[in-house]
Design a protein around this nucleic acid. Sequence first.
DNA 1: TTGTAAGCGTTATCAT
DNA 2: ATGATAACGCTTACAA
Lengths: 360, 360
Amino acid sequence: MAKVKAEVGGMPGPATKMPGSTPTGGVGLRDVARAVGVSTATVSRAINRPEVVSPELRERIALAVAELGWIPDGRARAFTTGRSQTIGAVFPTLGLGDFPRAANAIQRQLLDVGYTLLLACSEYDPDLEFQQVRKFAERGVDGVILVGLAHHPDLLPFLKQRNLPFISSFIYEPAIHGSCVGPDNHKALVTMTDYLADLGHVRFAVIAQATENNDRASARLAGIRDALALRGLAVRPQHLAIGTWTIEEGRRLFAQVMATDPRPTAIICGNAPLAIGAVLEALATGRRVPEDVSIVGYDDIEIMSHLPVPVTTVRVPGEEIGYRAARLIVDRVEQREPDYPLESEAEIVVRASSGPPPKD
Amino acid sequence: MAKVKAEVGGMPGPATKMPGSTPTGGVGLRDVARAVGVSTATVSRAINRPEVVSPELRERIALAVAELGWIPDGRARAFTTGRSQTIGAVFPTLGLGDFPRAANAIQRQLLDVGYTLLLACSEYDPDLEFQQVRKFAERGVDGVILVGLAHHPDLLPFLKQRNLPFISSFIYEPAIHGSCVGPDNHKALVTMTDYLADLGHVRFAVIAQATENNDRASARLAGIRDALALRGLAVRPQHLAIGTWTIEEGRRLFAQVMATDPRPTAIICGNAPLAIGAVLEALATGRRVPEDVSIVGYDDIEIMSHLPVPVTTVRVPGEEIGYRAARLIVDRVEQREPDYPLESEAEIVVRASSGPPPKD
DNA sequence: TTGTAAGCGTTATCAT
DNA sequence: ATGATAACGCTTACAA
């Protein structure tokens, strides 16, 4: 009990505080201390550095804690220590590709090391992303996980000024080693493009999401272009279709690029829904995949291997990325050096949707 | 500057604090106050209740705030006010059905009203869910959003004791009106079952996820059973297949129930991946859908309408649920009465995967 | 309208 | 090994 502050009879008095619900259930460290007959300092130590209090006391304190149902007030703790044991992550969206998997992995790993995840979505909007990060800063996160490298121009200065550690995920750039974790998007699409070109393809179409504010999408597009250029090839303007990340859009854009002349023989899709849409539209319109046209995607979500024609795609290890992102940001916060690889290998998963180009 | 506390010459002294990075960038309310030449109280008021300070001061304070790049330290604020403007949500998983959509919606809505979302996953494990909620409580969340009604036995008492408002989402029970928001899972599957029975189906199979710790899944199963019982029908034991929530599993369980004798003519799937798997397995094994067998699902994610045979399914308005969940928990926290509906209508979206049973 | 000053629950410093 | 006590940055009576 204790805490029942002052007036019981209900006089005006200095107004009992009670702005919101008592966070820790009304019991504080002092209540525990009082119950055991020690000082708050001792209780605090018993919690945070048990080895430094006598076993006997430790025992009695643990008992009282359980008895009273006390849990530490993280707010007060954060306030006092200057760290909140909290990490903020801003994803473009949940529910696309490997993001949910990664978010899950981050969350699990953070929990393991005693941190909590604050998760927000930017909806691919740099302004919103910045706003979310500001919120996080206000909330006192110890570090921030971002996706990609393209951000609001004021974002990085903001973080710098506040000395807030941050990392970029789902991307790897050797130039900023130590602050990014993910696959090399450029390299992944070079590999994919090479694979298709080696099959004999010459006319490539690309269905992808907009590259503005999305350096990962840009890197992928650049990878395709660079790989083709090495062979003296290029994507025709009418074979480049830009959209969003829905199946619907994939169907539409597939139909669009297939209506051109000459037709492409290989279609590279910038994300999973676009690839799914392309494949389903191809089948729905009676085309044979890959005999008439090869289609490849990005992100190996489960459905990719289950469509009537399983889809060749770039597999990004989302779980691994999330796990490492969590470790990395915590290591940054706690000033440790990462001792694990930061570049994740994206691999090409070859399935039935890709093959040699038609003879025609 | 200011903050440069005491010793500049670098004597031991009482040790400058600096445990972690300074959260607010080194500038505090007092710095702003000093710069303007007013008291901290005035600055605080200028921020929180602008109408109560003179316009002139308000102006100068705003200027100084911008100048110094000050942002409030949410930790201190939370500490002082007893509220953190933070809501915790524990979802079973991201990346299944409408959960990502709902999470997104919650997050957006909370942002709108000045709250921040803490998101965690329970992986359908009640212990983990409880642990996450404890973490949230420690972090001082003002309220908690849960999914469903089945929880760790100690969870609700825990929340009660701490006076922590919470709501259940993705479920609606009239009996606890005001603390839940979502569809009536039971009713939804009664409707779906009636629809199929009215088409003439008599032999029903059910492919669903385990019902332990998942009252929503239980409610759906009960809905099917009750609707059938009203017609004197029941699901044969060998036509009830329990699994997880993967496409893979859907394929396997579909094959399993179709290998029985007599065969079912209608298959009700408990979630989207199971339905997708069932349909794809049916097509892959040369069955005609719905001529040979009708297949229906739960959750209307995009792919459902795009498969070679579009899938009849229960559509749950995930976005609406998330939006309302966010509003509801905030209203609970701020002791307001909700003035919007809490029950979301699940609707049956009829597509090509369902039809009359085969004559056989 | 503005200033003064008392907390809020914990950790950390210093003394014992 | 333990206790006393001063912060931490902000909000909020209450006084002026």
